[in-house]
């Protein structure tokens, strides 16, 4: 697939497709256990780096260390781990929650049970992306990447600017990157429609 084949309705610039904050998402609804997917946790733990989930004893050192949680308590590693353990698959994967992580990796740094929550969250994001929940921001970045090998839009003004500062010109060739992206199937994934 050529980058230009990406549908036109995909915005060029990064739109804000995620809610500004997610704290309001706190659902008061009772969780219906029979409707949960008990196999979900195994599905997650099968992935590299995610097996530590079974050792989580919910001490909350991750949440207490999380800079995003402090700003927006809707993002809560302990709670997300719990949701996966209980099998709340659809709720987890469709939720914008999982995309708010800033990847600081404090959760993993302070976990006494060596649960690598950063990796677990990454598995969840990959699963969600499979289903078409990839945020536009990342989709747009990938599109730039396929064109130029860089995740940002580039233009003439920028090139002129670099030249004026005596910075060397950059070779902007997305060819190899595009091939690798196509090989790993990411090109198909970014055109998926949300369920």
């Amino acid at each position: 697939m050529k980058p230009d084949d990406i549908p036109e309705d995909m915005p060029e610039d990064i739109p804000e497709d995620m809610p500004e904050n997610i704290s309001g998402d706190d659902s008061e609804e009772t969780v219906q256990v029979p409707n949960l997917d008990p196999a979900f946790k195994y599905e997650v733990m099968r992935n590299e780096g995610a097996g530590g989930l079974k050792y989580c004893f919910a001490c909350g050192a991750c949440t207490a260390s999380c800079p995003i949680h402090e700003i927006d308590h809707g993002f809560d590693p302990r709670k997300l781990a719990r949701m996966v353990q209980l099998g709340m698959k659809d709720e987890v994967l469709s939720s914008p929650l999982i995309w708010y992580c800033s990847a600081c990796r404090n959760c993993e740094q302070h976990c006494p049970q060596s649960v690598e929550f950063f990796n677990i969250l990454n598995v969840l994001k990959n699963m969600a992306a499979e289903k078409g929940y990839a945020p536009y921001a990342w989709v747009v970045q990938t599109r730039h990447l396929m064109r130029t090998g860089m995740v940002f839009r580039t233009d003439e003004a920028w090139e002129t600017r670099r030249k004026a500062l005596s910075l060397p010109p950059l070779q902007l060739d997305g060819e190899k990157v595009r091939e690798l992206i196509e090989l790993s199937g990411l090109d198909e994934l970014i055109v998926k429609k949300r369920p």
Binding site: E48, W99, A129, W138, S184, L186, L189, I190
Partner: peptide, 9 residues
């Protein structure tokens, strides 16, 4: 950032 969408990529 691409690891978010696909770790392999």
């Amino acid at each position: 950032n691409q690891i978010d969408l696909n770790k392999e990529t």
